[in-house]
Amino acid sequence: MRTKRSYIKEYSVIFVSLVIIITINLILGSILLPFKDIVSAFTGTDTPQYIKDIIFTFRIPKVITALLAGAALSVCGLQMQTLFRNPLADPFILGISSGAGLGVALLVMGFSAFGISLSSSLFSTIGIATSAWLGALSVTLIILMVSARFRDSISLLIFGIMLGSVVGAVISLLQYFSSSSALKVFVLWTMGSFAGLSQTQIWVMFILILTGMAMSLYSIKDLNALLMGESYAKSLGVNLERTRRRILIATTLLAGSVTAFCGPIGFIGIAVPHIARMLFRNADHKVLMPATALLGASIMVFADTVAQLPGQSGVIPINTVSALIGVPVILFVILKNRFI
């Protein structure tokens, strides 16, 4: 009789390191905050007001955003890799980030065409998030409309990549004709950032991602069946079309929301599921999905800690860091031992 392997040890190691990384993230920054100040800020004993301000208005919202983004993108990447049976699939493989980019480009560069500049007003953050989300949603809607026509997911994958390229071409065209100030706003968005989200925005992002996560959890059983090919899954009674639709909607909720609020953050979505497979040596999505979410959150917060350049006043774009972390992992894991 086989005894079920428990992964409590692995999960707790990841969880403890997540807590440590979060603490380090809160300590480091343009000003170093002593650990005891952070503790006292939470326990409520007398802490200087400016420290409370730094922690509660800047650092905590940023950490929460990074946690949500990391977990969402990684879980999304895991599903895409299983659905398309492709180790290089990421949350954006069906053109969701291009769609979001087009939304932002239309907003930013469209306004500049009328002579209105969108520099850094509150309107611009909300406007950018909304237009990015609408852009991502429209790409998903197009893909959902055509997905019923495709017999297998590979045709869907090709369609998604092609659609992404077309949208990318339109974005380039818009960039070519736009003013340099509008171009700067757009380029800054593509670099990604976790900072500057209001409490309301974080709540919206949280609810969207929570819904996406719930749908992803519901797909676990179908994803496990899909591991052994679509025709086998279909012979088991998996409703392929419905599963595909559910995964696509979850992807928009997860990756679309992250892209809308933080910009298109690359590499995490491909790399983290591979790290999870390497650590857990298990293909069961019941094990992999929570592991991927936890690992994704930890790595994203770590990337953010590096990006804020401890002790310096400036920050570097999060996409630079995620690429520097993600690319070696992708090369190592995928070239060394392909797990799909």
């Binding site: 052994m228 293909a283 069961d284 031992n337 797990f339």
Partner: peptide, 12 residues
């Protein structure tokens, strides 16, 4: 059947 890496015989 396509084979999935790391999928145990039992889970398969």
């Amino acid at each position: 059947s396509p084979r999935a890496k790391n999928l145990s015989v039992f889970d398969m």
